[in-house]
Every structure is written in C-alpha cells, then in structure tokens.
C-alpha cells in the first residue's frame, strides 16, 4: 500500500488480490486491518463479491465469438456460481517429498499451479498430480483433470505422463482427463504428441484423443477449442458426450454424485451446465435438459427414465 492513504475500497482490493494466492496466510494482519476501521469489513465484502463474480467472465473476449448453439441453456451465472465458490473451499493437500511435489484436490475444489518457467497447470476437483522440482518441464497426472498452459520450448518440450502413456507438447494449451482406465487429451492451442515412442499420435488444436487402457488404438475426434478447459470457469459444455462422462465431470467439478440407471451411460448429451449454484441444482438441470427424472438418495442423485 502506498503513502497516499488509500481508500477503504483500495485497501480491500489489495487484500483480495493478495488472498488469491493459495499460499496467503497473513490472516492476523487481515484481522487487524478489519478491526482498524468499521468501514473495512463492508469494503472487503464488496471487493470479494466482485472478485467471486469475476470467476464467470469469459476467459478472453474473443471466446464470445465462438458459436454457441442457441439450444443450450446458460444457467444463472454470477450469484449462483459464486455461491458455490464461497462454500467451504480448500486449497488441497501438498505433499512434499524431497524432489517430488504431489498436489491433490478434493472433488469440487480447483487450484492452479504456476511452475518456475511460467507454465501453469489448472487442477480440477478430485485430481492428483506430481511435479518434480528437479525436472521443471515434467508433470505426472495420476488421476482427475488438469489444463496445461505450457510455455513452449522446442529444445525442451514439456512432458506429461498419464496412465502409462506420455504426452509431449508441441504447442501450448491442452487439457488431460484421467479417470476409470481411460485418458482424454483435448488440445485448444498448438498440438501435442501422444506416446511418441509407441502410437506417436499427433493431436492438433481442436482435436481430442481418447485412449482406453483396454484398447491400444486411441481415437481422435473434433472438439471446439474455445471450450477446452471450460470447467475452470465453471462451464461444462457438451456436444454429444456420453452421460457417463458428464456425470464424472460434475462429480469432479462440484463433488455432486449422480448415478445413472442402466442403459443411460452411453446416451449422448448436448448442452451446457454451470457448476455453480447449490449442489442439488445441477442434477435437476441435467435431468431437465435430458428429459430424465432425478431422485435423491441420501448424498447422491439418481437419473432414471420417465417423466417428472
């Protein structure tokens, strides 16, 4: 803070900016600041709400130019999403062994790691990743989903190991999901090479590779690059993904468990969901968009055929 007696709003903004760092722990000083002036708490509330609502902003203004099918229903943004964000959120566990740093997030929790070279890895919920301090251009995704924004260096490509395979960057931005014996790699900018020593599959921007452990031949399909990693801003957008994938994404991103009646797992889903809002709502919205019926069983929701 500078010498010119910043206003309570300006001071509150500085606190909000500092607290965005997951390592922030100066809560005693923050308490003292709140106690110093009765206007501080209110100024902080306004700044913190502005910050929470900003989570729903489009990543780049250009993203809005991407065609969004009009049939998609965009659910309440700001308030609802922030309500979820301001629930109990955690900053995951960090397990430091000598060289390997292992980071884990709980379902419904998100976290971004920034590496020494400026590359960043955004972790979705229920995700485990290991990075090696001696190898800054390496990460091992053990489970869950991560979006990689890699500073590209042709002489020293960034490498991710996942499910026994290796993904090598030939560009910059890609998202990897590892779940239930299957790996998906979606590329939004640049390109990656999947298993250069085996299948050597080149995945360009706008493409997604899916490799099942049981099947040696990965499949490559087209995707909308701007939607890759949409989970970071709480948006899940699908164009024909199987419902089993949708409910897995919801569980990872929000912690809400949804089970499917038999025969529904492969049913294709088209539409958009926001992971904000209260936990039960996303199940209800998914039911409404699919014409299925959602019933609650203790902590989880069950989707079945049949009207409301």
């Amino acid at each position: 803070m500078d010498q010119s007696r910043p206003t309570p709003d300006a001071q509150a903004i500085d606190w909000v900016i500092r607290q965005r760092d997951p390592a922030f722990d100066d809560w005693d000083a923050f308490t003292l600041w709140l106690e110093a002036d009765t206007r501080h708490a209110e100024a902080y509330d306004v700044a913190a709400v502005a910050d929470a609502d900003a989570a729903d902003l489009p990543a780049q203004p250009v993203a809005r130019a991407v065609a969004r099918p009009s049939r998609r229903i965009w659910l309440a943004g700001g308030a609802a999403a922030a309500a979820a964000l301001v629930g109990i959120v955690g900053y995951g566990a960090v397990d430091r062994s000598p060289d390997l740093v292992r980071v884990a997030t709980a379902a419904g929790e998100r976290r971004t790691l920034t590496l020494a070279d400026g590359s960043s890895i955004a972790l979705n919920g229920d995700t485990r990743i290991a990075i090696d301090r001696d190898r800054p251009r390496f990460a091992a995704l053990e489970q869950g989903e991560a979006m990689f924004r890699v500073v590209h260096d042709p002489a020293d490509p960034f490498t991710v190991t996942v499910g026994g395979a290796t993904v090598v960057d030939v560009g910059t931005v890609f998202d990897i999901v590892r779940e239930a014996g299957s790996t998906r790699v979606a590329v939004s900018e640049g390109a990656v090479v999947y298993n250069p020593d085996a299948q050597n599959a080149h995945v360009a921007a706008g493409r997604q590779l899916q490799a099942d452990d049981a099947d040696a031949t990965p499949r490559i399909t087209a995707i909308v690059p701007a939607l890759v990693g949409g989970w970071r801003t709480g948006q899940l957008v699908y164009d024909g993904a199987p419902l089993s994938t949708v409910v897995a994404d919801i569980r990872r991103g929000t912690g809400t468990r949804i089970t499917l009646a038999s025969g529904l797992a492969d049913r294709p889903f088209r539409g958009a969901l926001l992971t904000g809002g209260d936990k039960g709502r996303i199940a209800g919205e998914l039911a409404a968009l699919t014409g299925l019926r959602a019933t609650r069983r203790q902590d989880e929701w069950h989707l079945t055929r049949g009207g409301p």
Binding site: Q19, D25, W27, L85, I88, V89, G90, Y91, A93, A104
Partner: peptide, 19 residues
C-alpha cells in the same frame, strides 16, 4: 481431505462463510 495448512484453510472457510 488432507489439508496442507489447516489454520489458513479454516480462515478461508470462515471468510467464505461471511461472504
């Protein structure tokens, strides 16, 4: 799950509750 800095986590949770 396991939490790296439990006290900081609690402050954040308390802060979020107030928000």
């Amino acid at each position: 799950g396991p939490v790296g800095q439990p006290l900081s986590y609690l402050y954040r949770a308390a802060n979020n509750l107030m928000l």
